[in-house]
């Protein structure tokens, strides 16, 4: 077994045996879909012909992806460092790049599974989401969004020493961002100054990209801008996370 296979297998088993993780990764976004679906049921967005669900669903999905990526890596990093698993890995001859790659692959697989389940549920007649023909464009956005929030998770995991700290810091970052980016409330309902704040939120660009790809609304220029900004965020967050990284809590 290669390091890559062994680690992805271990992560798969750990994830599927942990009911809390499964709930927050897969079921929780669906709960929000139901709530927002009920609030905006039947309403149409003027001029576009889209239902509100076409904008709400990408918002909840963007948040779900960001949440799972950030918390997944933050908890794992905190736990592996606290329990000396990082040291254990460092003391084996495994290539560190292979370890990182395995973790990335796990995060991407979770993200893809989230998207499939979420869109699958959102498109049933009860919610009535319509998926635009250019939906494959959601894939790069999804990958870049996951990369960005893996970077965020890397930072949270590096500065947290307990699960409680991960929850507290993570929620302080992700929940306000879900509102300020327009993922939970349409930016159109925000005052102008708050709308400009949304442009500082990485989640805003995942949302823009997903709306363009899935709802078929918006300009192609906004899509490419979203991709570029996410590349920037991902690079900066990952760099900060790596700077803060330590192998052990008593270093």
């Amino acid at each position: 077994m290669t390091v890559f296979t062994a680690l992805t297998r271990a992560s798969y088993k750990a994830n599927t045996r942990d009911a809390v993780t499964i709930f927050f990764t897969f079921a929780f976004p669906l709960v929000f879909l139901v709530i927002f679906g009920l609030i905006f049921k039947g309403q149409e967005v003027v001029e576009t012909g889209n239902g509100y669900i076409d904008f709400i669903a990408p918002g909840v999905l963007a948040w779900g992806l960001a949440n799972a990526a950030a918390f997944g890596v933050a908890f794992t990093l905190m736990q592996w460092r606290r329990d000396d698993l990082l040291r254990l890995i460092r003391l084996t001859p495994a290539r560190i790049s292979e370890v990182v790659l395995a973790r990335l692959a796990v995060a991407v697989c979770i993200g893809v599974a989230q998207c499939l389940l979420f869109i699958g549920v959102a498109t049933i007649p009860l919610f009535g989401m319509n998926v635009a023909p250019r939906w494959p464009l959601a894939l790069p956005i999804m990958l870049l969004g996951i990369a960005t929030f893996l970077g965020v998770g890397l930072i949270i995991g590096a500065i947290s020493k307990t699960p409680e700290a991960v929850s507290a810091i993570g929620n302080c970052v992700v929940i306000p961002m879900a509102f300020l980016s327009g993922a939970f409330i349409p930016v159109e309902l925000m005052p102008d100054w708050l709308r400009s704040v949304s442009y500082a939120m990485p989640l805003r660009y995942i949302l823009d990209g997903l709306v363009y790809a899935l709802a078929g609304a918006g300009e192609v220029g906004d899509y490419w801008r979203a991709c570029l900004v996410l590349v920037g965020f991902a690079t900066v967050f990952t760099a900060i996370g790596l700077r803060l990284f330590t192998w052990s809590n008593d270093e």
């Binding site: 077994m1 390091v3 088993k13 750990a14 329990d83 000396d84 001859p93």
Partner: peptide
């Protein structure tokens, strides 16, 4: 500190460690 991979069994943990050594 006993460093074990979370949620795994004893043999799964050791199989994972073994893989790190090829």
């Amino acid at each position: 500190k006993s460093a074990f991979f979370p949620h795994l069994t004893a043999s799964e943990h050791l199989e994972t460690v073994a893989a790190f050594y090829g």
